[in-house]
Design a protein around this nucleic acid. Structure first.
Lengths: 169, 169
DNA sequence: GTTGCCATTTAGAAAGTTTCTACGTAGGCT
DNA sequence: AGCCTACGTAGAAACTTTCTAAATGGCAAC
């Protein structure tokens, strides 16, 4: 993260990023959680990252600024954020991935490069078809949330493959 | 397991179960994989299990019949089955869960008891709405498969909660 | 039926991820 | 400023998955 907010200069893009960080810090306090330096650092590192980082990735980046930070703090903080509704957990492979985007959305995962993209959707409500099948297969089930994962090949990898390049798998 | 559909008689359950095992063994051979005793045991244990067992759960059960079986064999076999299209992997928590049902379907996961139910759906195709959002958020992405996970409270847990009982997480 | 190849199994180690414990620290309210 | 308690740290522990080397055995070919 080279465009982090620790620099003095604030560009237009960083302005939005700062807003998001500020909003998360505000929500953090409203949830009754303490704004410790470590949590502020996690939020600054995490809030505007669209790559769905793993705990390890966040830990590696945070350590550059906080050499003393422990792995448990990363998990504790992410759990705290998730409990407060400021983040969500996504389990796609062996390691969990975390998402600062709490607006309703789905995910597109590339089979080739592993990239995870957010797919915004206005309505997360199940279709009538889905509701019907849900009702008959799991009677009485009350839906709290729905996750959708699209698996396939992303545009970039599709272009590489069509050019005959085969770097991975 | 209540079927809720217009057909499906319990009296034929065993017959259907045997058929399914036979079909999986046939498909296994057609995929060029050897029908070892361990694989046959995994298939017999796994083919008709609707609970989406973890590798640990399958291993525990298999060990009763095959005390010498190693954990790696369970993973190897499940991977082989998945490669041959006879099973699929579902990652919901820390441990992967496996599903012998390869017909297109979704999953309903209970927040309280953790039960996983299959939700059959005729069409797995994304809605026009989803396609539109997918195209703009991930240009060029080609969908191979779509997974949906409904999270909520299952009928059983809902009934318990409404009676004021709180047995577990 | 025998032989031989090679996929597969096994035990164990290793790698990787997540959770837990004990204790020291410090945030933030009064 | 002082207190209470939530929080952070280090490290261990628990758990899941993958890997390695060596032995085994399924099954095709003869």
């Amino acid at each position: 993260m080279k465009s982090g907010s620790s620099h003095g200069h604030v560009s237009h893009a960083d302005a939005h990023a700062s807003e998001r960080v500020a909003a998360m810090l505000r929500d953090l306090k409203e949830a009754g959680l303490k704004a410790t330096p470590q949590r502020v650092a996690v939020i600054e590192t995490f809030a505007n990252d669209p790559t769905h980082p793993t705990a390890q990735e966040l830990f590696d980046r945070l350590r550059e600024r906080f050499p003393a930070m422990s792995f448990a703090t990363v998990y504790n903080t992410l759990d705290a954020l998730a409990s407060a509704g400021l983040a969500s957990t996504l389990r796609l492979g062996t390691a969990a991935r975390f998402d600062p985007n709490t607006t309703p959305h789905h995910h597109a995962v590339c089979d080739r490069c592993g990239a995870v993209n957010d797919i915004p959707t206005e309505s997360m409500a199940p279709t009538d078809d889905a509701k019907r099948h849900l009702a008959s297969a799991a009677p009485g089930f009350v839906v709290r949330a729905e996750e959708r994962i699209f698996r396939g090949i992303c545009g970039e990898c599709g272009a590489l493959v069509s050019r005959g390049e085969r770097k991975l798998s």
